[in-house]
């Protein structure tokens, strides 16, 4: 029992390291090669945990071999479009100029239900609103609506606005983020001043967000007097 426990702890740490090594893309949308690695990794990791007669190295070696190969392949794919196409495939246009390409749908083995479901996932409930739809290499659909159906932007409405970064999270549960302060061009003393104005110490702040203009939102920890 203890062997299983220790192996589970070690493999947990190793798999987290392996997934981190694969990069952020792995956590979000899976390319075909990454999906294969993820499935294999989860299967292989369970073998030495379930069967203590299997040496743990028999699980660790293939996991890291797969991850390393995946990283090497993605590095190569970055340098060559042809390789990228080979490993990940290429996006397919499934609706063009408002017209469904049934051949592409057939090639992708995409049913009408699949298409409608994917469109609903993009907040499109009426297919006649779609100008262009692309099936990405991850299998996800991205949609460009017809201009008559699209949400008007501020520039369409001739509204004068200034581009600005959204507020940054400066204090989270009393913890001041130096990186966020640098982002908005302020320092720790500014936080102390803001906190003092609210009759609190920085440690008593639950959330403090602020933008470059110095506009801030402060929420104090509950129970603070």
């Amino acid at each position: 029992m203890l062997i299983v426990f220790f192996r589970a702890v070690i493999l947990y740490a190793l798999i987290i390291f392996a997934v981190r090594l694969m990069g952020k893309r792995q956590i979000g949308e899976l390319q075909p090669s990454e999906l294969v690695v993820t499935i294999l990794m989860s299967n292989i990791a369970t073998l030495p945990i379930e069967d203590v007669s299997i040496p743990m190295i028999m699980g660790v070696v293939p996991i890291f071999t797969f991850v390393c190969l995946d990283v090497f392949m993605s590095q190569l794919a970055m340098k060559s479009r042809r390789l990228r196409k080979l490993f990940s495939g290429e996006p397919k246009i499934i609706i063009s100029e408002g017209k469904i390409d049934q051949k592409v749908m057939h090639d992708l083995r995409y049913t009408v239900d699949d298409l409608m479901e994917s469109l609903r996932g993009c907040d499109v409930f009426d297919i006649s609103q779609v100008q262009l739809a692309v099936v990405e290499t991850t299998g996800k659909i991205t949609v460009c609506r017809k201009s008559t159906q699209d949400t008007p932007s501020r520039s369409d409405m001739k509204l004068k606005t200034q581009d600005a970064d959204p507020p940054a999270l400066i204090v989270a549960d009393g913890d001041i983020s130096e990186a966020a302060l640098r982002l908005i061009g302020r320092d720790r003393r500014w936080v102390e001043k803001i906190a003092a104005a609210a009759g609190a110490e920085p440690e008593d702040i639950f959330i403090l967000t602020a933008d470059k203009q110095g506009v801030y939102t402060l929420i104090r920890k509950e129970g603070f007097k």
Partner: peptide
């Protein structure tokens, strides 16, 4: 670099 880490691991 990830590739270097992977190279060392391999």
């Amino acid at each position: 670099n990830r590739a270097v880490v992977c190279g060392v691991l391999m």
